[in-house]
Simulated assay, not measured.
Amino acid sequence: MTGDVTTLVPPLKKTLFCATHPSKKAKLYCETCDELICRDCIVRVHRDHQYDLVPESFAKQEKVIVDSLKPVEEQIATLERAVESVDTRCAAVVEQKTAVVAEIRTAMAHLRQALEARETELVGQAEQTAQQKLKTLAAQRDGLNCNWAS
């Protein structure tokens, strides 16, 4: 959108004709009616209207368009800065998410290791307790068998 308005609107290269008199060249622009007219139309329909030659009217309209684009260009620059700011913040959020996910994975790996170590410890204690009880029970059975056999 930046640039001169003349780059946006190509110069008129073809001959323009009057809408009322198609055989006549439209050399004037009626500013009151906002239309191209020929000299005959000035006398008949557009007598008391504001009109000017097409090149001069084009220059006036070009200035109006250029002037009306200035605030838009300022808004575009503001919007571009806002979009850049949002993009920067998005990148920061993605970077932060990546760091948090890595931290969570590390913490979970440590918790898994701790749980597995605790599991190994508890299983070992359970097996040791069971072996001791089994020994005690085996001794009781042997004692009962000895008393029974006698």
Rank of each mutant, 00 (worst) to 15 (best):
Q131N: 10
E74P: 00
C30N: 02
H21Q: 03
L144A: 13
T88M: 11
I42T: 09
E73G: 08
R141Q: 04
I42S: 04
E31W: 03
R89A: 14
T88Y: 09
A130M: 04
K25L: 06
A91Y: 02
L111T: 05
Q140I: 10
T106I: 09
E119G: 07
L12T: 13
D4E: 08
W148C: 02
R39D: 01
L122G: 03
R105S: 15
A107K: 08
S150G: 12
V100N: 06
V5C: 04
R39E: 04
V5T: 05
G124R: 14
R112F: 12
A109C: 07
P55L: 12
K133P: 01
A59N: 13
V43M: 01
V5F: 10
T136G: 03
T120H: 12
C38Y: 04
Q128A: 15
P71N: 00
E56Q: 13
D67C: 11
T129W: 07
P71A: 01
K27A: 10
A109H: 01
A91D: 15
R39P: 02
S150N: 10
G143N: 05
E119N: 13
L79N: 11
Q132R: 15
E56N: 14
G3Q: 01
Q128K: 15
S68L: 07
C38D: 05
L69G: 08
E121D: 14
P71R: 01
I42L: 09
A114R: 12
E103S: 14
L53H: 09
V101M: 03
C30I: 00
T120F: 09
R47V: 06
E62T: 13
V43N: 02
V86I: 15
M108R: 08
Q50L: 12
R44D: 04
T32E: 02
T98I: 02
H49R: 03
E121C: 11
S23D: 07
R81C: 00
R44N: 05
D48N: 06
L79M: 11
P22W: 01
T7D: 10
Q131F: 05
T32G: 03
S68T: 10
R118Q: 11
A109E: 15
H21G: 02
T129N: 13
D52V: 13
V72P: 00
V101H: 01
E35Q: 11
E103D: 15
S57N: 12
T88K: 10
I76G: 00
L115Q: 10
H110I: 04
V43K: 06
R141M: 05
